[in-house]
Design a protein around this nucleic acid. Sequence first.
DNA 1: CATTTTAATGACCGGATCGTCATAAATGTG
DNA 2: CACATTTATGACGATCCGGTCATTAAAATG
Lengths: 215, 215
Amino acid sequence: MVSLMPVEGKTRREVLTEFRRAEILAAARKVFAARGFRAATLEEVAVEAGLAKGTLYLYFDSKEEMFWAIFRGRVAEMHRRLQAVLSEPGGTADKIRAGLRVRFELLREDQDFMRIYLTEFGQCIYGGPWAKEFRKLHLAGARLLAPVLEEGIRRGELRAVPPLETALALMDLVKSTVSLKLLGMHENRIDVEQFIFDLFWRGVRAEGAAAEGGQ
Amino acid sequence: MVSLMPVEGKTRREVLTEFRRAEILAAARKVFAARGFRAATLEEVAVEAGLAKGTLYLYFDSKEEMFWAIFRGRVAEMHRRLQAVLSEPGGTADKIRAGLRVRFELLREDQDFMRIYLTEFGQCIYGGPWAKEFRKLHLAGARLLAPVLEEGIRRGELRAVPPLETALALMDLVKSTVSLKLLGMHENRIDVEQFIFDLFWRGVRAEGAAAEGGQ
DNA sequence: CATTTTAATGACCGGATCGTCATAAATGTG
DNA sequence: CACATTTATGACGATCCGGTCATTAAAATG
């Protein structure tokens, strides 16, 4: 009966099921990114995945579950990468620059995800079932950066800014710049990453410091 | 037949019609702000206005028209006020501060509007019928500030930042801060307006300048 | 007060879409 | 090959909502 070959503690069936789930999520990410959560239809997702709509429900309970599976996973990935670069040794300016780079890299790698992040975040104000989760994830990102800023203040590299608020300001600066990029406003006239870094770094560095991060 | 009393070039009927339109728009603003454009239903708007749904269509052609009547009017008002404070004499720092004050005042006066602005702006990426309009209005705001920055650069008060991009960055900095305020993240721990001004001004001021705007 | 004109109503239509379920195809089993 | 089990299907039910329209209420008119 269970002659399905077990592979690394999982039956062949479980592996196949996971594969299908992943296939469906890839299709869903595409559709959600193109249309937004509300306007995206499961029919589209099904077509994109080469399946029938009913089949989706063998792997997910609802449209919401699909969305969150995509979203949570990607945010977690982003936070892992942020954490990684922020824990490397280096000055505060370097860390801020590295954190910026992670976000811009992510944008280049996966515009779909950023689009979801940016547009659905606005909706979280309406307090649907996600408002709390969204807010928690967003704050979690800021809490990764805040200690770096605190450290910078202690070391005298930064003036005494409120760490969490400043971290949030930076994240939003990136976020909205990213949204402008998606809107095609910046084109290639300036180096956006460098521009944002300059603006922010000059905004937070200690009074006496030169433009040390301006390489 | 036309015994309706003309008042300042308008018949009594026209005045009443305008009044009804305004009543409906007030109700609509409330509902749109509470639920967002998509989730808001005309049934709710009608109830809020104390009318039947069908009656709304005597005054507006569609849900979209209602939304834009609200949105355009309010943005125009914001731009008028920005233009007014930016054209007053004063240093660049003063003007930036005054521009910030306008936006924060607007937030305090009419949170509903800001909510609409913030949340529906995210959606404009999807290129519905509004994408172009939204973008145009958003850029128009930046174009009010850009000349002030250019003037500041000429006068040597600011370093050579790209004016339009910098104006957009400031607008977004305010916008997202505002959204955090709406989310209840800041509470009253810091003076947000002062915080944003400091961050931005230090980010753009000329190399030699002291924190002149820090009053 | 009778009549005409305007304003208001809410039942209804049409389209969209989430999620279900009886049925069918595919796959595995003996 | 017959049978059982898992996977897939897409028509369908249910719901929601923007917009319409025949009908009713109100207001103006003479």
